[in-house]
Structure formats: structure tokens, C-alpha cells
């Protein structure tokens, strides 16, 4: 009888925990897109974007960045800032931008979460495969208890902030090139 009562209490408490926090959700593509990015140059070419190194967020995982969402966030930022004339899919763009997520360091415990991120940006001219840019971009993002109470949400916000900063820095580096 006592064992059954304890088991019920435990189940209720676990259920409460899941309702309060649940598991992680992936970084949101809109939240990863820099909103007011201004660039020094506008390149009169079309661009193809490809991404790698990202991961889906499993139900038992912490927040990750999927390749598709990273690609969409970069493409959206390029379109908003008019950095290139157009975005193309497939292999017929004037330039190809490859962005690979090479490191995403996430805390597992704490109040204020800081996420460190590194990406490898390379820009290649499609016609002759010449490399116009090869750059490592390192950024971080922080979320505090005032941003979100639940740890999983706070971590997602920190990941999104790090990605937003990263895309901004990467595109600014591309904007400085003379293509």
C-alpha cells in the first residue's frame, strides 16, 4: 500500500516536471535571422547557400540547429539585406556560400546560459571554383532567467542569439569582399 502510494506520488511529480518544462525544441529559423542587418556592399550576383554540421533536435535532446533552418535563416538575411541580387536553389548560382557548424558548446546546468558557436564560412565562384572567402566565425549568445524561466527555453534562446550573431558577422565579412 505504501509502495503504491509512493509510486503514485513519483509518477505525479514526473508528470508535473514534464508539463512544466518538457524536452527541448529546435532553434527557430525566424529567431536566428538578424532583423536589422545593414551591409556595406550589395553584390550584383546570384547566390546558392548550403549548410552542414547541424543536427535535428530529438525529443530527448537539447536545442540544436538543423541544417534546413540555418540555411533558411541565412537566405532570409541575404534577401532582407540585399547582399546578393537573388537566392537560387540547385547549382546555377554565380556564387556558392557554404556554412558549416563546427562547434556548438552548450551548458547543461545553470541560471544564465551562454552558448559558444563556431562556423566555417566559404564563398566560391561557381564558374571557376575559385575561393573568395574562407573564414572561421566565432560568436556567443546568452539568455538569463529573466528571458525564460524553463531551462530548455532559456537554452534555445541562447542558441538562437549565438546563431543570429554568427550570421550577422559572417554576412558582414562577405559584404566586405570585392567580388
Amino acid at each position: 500500500m505504501i509502495v503504491t502510494a509512493h509510486r503514485s506520488l513519483l509518477l505525479a511529480a514526473v508528470a508535473l516536471t514534464l508539463v512544466l518544462g518538457g524536452c527541448a525544441s529546435p532553434a527557430d529559423r525566424a529567431a536566428m535571422t538578424p532583423q536589422n542587418l545593414t551591409v556595406s556592399k550589395h553584390h550584383p550576383y546570384s547566390l546558392r547557400v548550403q549548410t552542414g554540421g547541424g543536427a535535428e533536435t530529438g525529443t530527448m535532446d537539447s536545442s540544436n540547429i538543423s541544417n534546413a533552418d540555418l540555411k533558411a535563416a541565412i537566405e532570409d538575411a541575404v534577401v532582407r539585406s540585399k547582399l546578393f541580387t537573388s537566392i537560387v536553389q540547385g547549382s546555377n548560382g554565380d556564387y556558392e556560400l557554404s556554412v558549416r557548424l563546427t562547434s556548438l558548446s552548450k551548458p547543461t546546468f545553470g541560471g544564465t546560459f551562454t552558448v559558444d558557436m563556431e562556423t566555417a564560412w566559404s564563398l566560391t565562384k561557381t564558374s571557376d571554383h575559385s575561393v573568395a572567402l574562407r573564414k572561421s566565425v566565432k560568436t556567443s549568445g546568452t539568455a538569463t532567467m529573466s528571458d525564460a524561466f524553463a531551462g530548455v527555453t532559456r537554452l534555445r534562446m541562447a542558441v538562437e542569439a549565438a546563431t543570429r550573431n554568427n550570421i550577422e558577422q559572417g554576412l558582414k565579412a562577405v559584404a566586405e569582399l570585392n567580388l
Binding site: 511529480a13 516536471t17 518544462g21 537539447s62 552548450k106 547543461t108 530548455v152 532559456r154
Partner: peptide
């Protein structure tokens, strides 16, 4: 468990 939810990030 609530504290764990608040302070930790995943499973």
C-alpha cells in the same frame, strides 16, 4: 523536479 526543470537543458 521543478528545480531540475528550471536549471537543466535536456535529456
Amino acid at each position: 523536479l521543478g528545480l531540475v526543470t528550471v536549471l537543466t537543458t535536456g535529456c
